[in-house]
Design a protein around this nucleic acid. Structure first.
Lengths: 224, 224
DNA sequence: GTTTTGAGGTAACTGCCGTTATGGTATTTG
DNA sequence: CAAATACCATAACGGCAGTTACCTCAAAAC
């Protein structure tokens, strides 16, 4: 009974690519191409796949095929499928946050630009975001992210609304945090329906919806 | 070369159970138990599984296990997995429609009872509905159902709102169909967030949200 | 009693998935 | 040049899925 040695001591995962950062550059190997850029490209492809096939339909193999490589490449940049999808989620929220930060002006044009953004690029980010929210319900790690991000989002919106209330541009008979909650829910609702009934969001109808939303939150002593 | 006879001519699917109806009763076999009831029970179990595991996590085997039977029973009542899930969707919408029909009174108490309904039974119907909406985006057959049902839902809501507008109970500066669209979107948005942040829907906060919604759609010359 | 039929269990077949191990190649450092 | 290393392709493994074929058993009709 001498032979008990084919345990292979796990061979510490050969790649140092846990975060989105440079791979530590202290080796002497290949030029390390542009690691972060390639990774970001894979994320983009993965977003498209999730948008069209859903979370469980977005297999590593499909992502690889779409990106023109093999699963070897994908697993090189992402330790897991979970890691890949987490990268997608964080990326989408970062995009959304920076969008929010960039719209300093009033609500209406803000929402308008938002909707145009959402319809661009075949609206992959929006569709993927929807699929991932559905998955968040099933995965505690996801749920935590969404709770944090959504809370921040709502707080930002509430702060902005409170400011507009002080300027008299938004009705003041509803507390800003409740208003933010309502607007946020409405946006989410549209996010749900947009993929299913895109014809309801043609330019004309969209404009009517936005105008109505502005009327809804305007002070009651406005025109008419 | 006489032997070429092990093609088994497909043996026309042995069960006549395509719809939810009785199995035609004209045979002389077993008493046909209560076919529809058993089927409905399986649907209920399937709803719970979808609610907790999502669409793709709800395998026939899991449904069978939860129902205390085997996949043989499930495939006896549903030709397909698709057939099973379609039964779920139609069932949930029927439930929702009959709920809508039962609330003849004003908006607020209607929404209140709706929310209580949604929180009951561990809110499986709501959770499952959310998961299935996400799947509707990926399956044209599903999308068609949701388009039809949602259109009906919104039309009902709009009709009711228009009546309230004529009675002066709802603000009239926004057309009823746009108002219905907005309220529907808000409800959908809450449906999204409820599974992820249930603590945001505690009794007190829920009441505040509902009150704010009523204020939002009230005529502007109301109290205060 | 025999046959028919409703009801459902058992298990095999095929296919896709995530994971992991391994091997190969190009490039940079020494 | 040689060694080390970043990058990636290939392929195998185990697991779970939907579907389908087959078998069993009880009850009703004859």
């Amino acid at each position: 009974m001498a032979a008990r040695n084919n345990l292979k001591l796990k061979s510490a995962p050969r790649s140092p690519n846990i975060p989105g950062e440079m791979p530590a550059k202290r080796g002497r190997g290949r030029p390390a191409g542009d690691h972060a850029a390639k990774r970001a490209e894979l994320v983009k492809v993965a977003i498209a796949v999730v948008a069209q096939e859903g979370f469980s339909g977005a297999s590593l193999r499909k992502v690889a095929q779409r990106a023109g490589c093999t699963t070897g490449a994908v697993t090189y940049y992402f330790e897991n499928k979970e890691a890949m999808v987490l990268a997608i989620v964080e990326g989408l929220w970062d995009e959304w946050d920076s969008y929010l930060a960039a719209t300093e002006d009033d609500l209406k044009s803000g929402f308008e630009r938002f909707l145009n953004w959402a319809k661009a690029d075949e609206s992959d980010p929006w569709l993927a975001g929807f699929q991932l929210i559905a998955h968040a319900r099933l995965d505690p790690a996801f749920a935590t992210i969404y709770q944090r991000r959504y809370a921040h989002y709502r707080k930002t919106l509430a702060t902005r609304l409170a400011k507009e209330q002080r300027r008299g541009k938004i009705r003041s008979d509803i507390p800003a945090d409740l208003l933010a909650d309502q607007l946020c829910a409405m946006a989410d609702g549209w996010m749900i329906m947009f993929p299913i009934e895109p014809e309801r969001f043609e330019a004309e109808r969209m404009k009517a919806l936005l105008d109505a939303m502005v009327v809804l939150v305007s002070p009651r002593d406005d025109k008419l």
